[in-house]
């Protein structure tokens, strides 16, 4: 039971103390975690972006194209002076505009065309009766769930039935996602309990 393990274990217990209710020990651990996470993000960001991607290429390798990025970055600090604050909209606009421009084709390809082609491709790979049944389930689920989200027209009987079936598929999706989420949290909990019992207290061999 070394000092490092004891510190980790006590902080773990401090976080778990929230199960008893909001208390000073938990508040301390929570604020410490938030503070450390901010400090960690700052350091990693400073090293990996400001130094490695800006300072070294610009001031040591002489990549002058990055002067624009430096100016745009510095404009972010204009937020601290009310009369200049509008200038921080320029780097924000550059970042959001670039993100939107990159997302447009990427989303079309990954979120729409690939999903459509993957749904149809299952029929090509289906070799037996059960595979064909599964492929039909996939197609029916896909079409009816899309129908569930279609609010453009009045829901006729056919569309109402289709969206009802779609809602069943959505519930299967939510149920499976919930089950996986619970189990992933459980495995993290078991990991923490294992750390406390095995590494700290040594009651498990």
């Amino acid at each position: 039971m070394d000092i490092t393990t004891t510190i980790s274990a006590l902080l773990t217990l401090a976080v778990f103390s929230f199960l008893y209710g909001d208390n000073p020990v938990y508040k301390f651990a929570e604020r410490l975690l938030v503070g450390l996470a901010v400090g960690y993000a700052l350091v990693i960001n400073w090293q990996q972006t400001i130094i490695d991607r800006l300072y070294t290429p610009l001031f040591i390798d002489g990549r002058l194209a990055l002067v624009v990025a430096l100016v745009l970055g510095l404009l972010m600090f204009s937020r601290f002076k009310r009369s200049w604050a509008w200038l921080s909209g320029i780097p924000l606009a550059a970042m959001i505009g670039a993100g939107a421009g990159a997302a447009l084709p990427a989303m079309l390809e990954a979120r729409i065309f690939k999903q459509l082609s993957a749904t149809v491709a299952v029929f090509h790979d289906a070799s037996g009766a059960f595979e064909m049944f599964s492929a039909i389930v996939l197609l029916v689920g896909f079409v009816t769930t899309l129908g569930y989200f279609y609010f453009g027209v009045h829901r006729s009987n056919a569309l109402a039935v289709s969206s009802k079936i779609g809602s069943y598929f959505l519930m299967i999706f939510f149920g499976a996602t919930f089950g996986y989420t619970v189990m992933s949290r459980m495995s993290i909990l078991i990991g923490r309990l294992d750390f406390l019992m095995r590494d700290w207290l040594g009651v498990i061999g």
Binding site: I50, R53, L54, A69, S88, P91
Partner: peptide
């Protein structure tokens, strides 16, 4: 690179 550098400065503003 521009995107990441601007984001990094944004994070600095956030920390301050």
């Amino acid at each position: 690179d521009y995107w990441q550098i601007i984001f990094a400065f944004g994070l600095l503003v956030g920390v301050v």
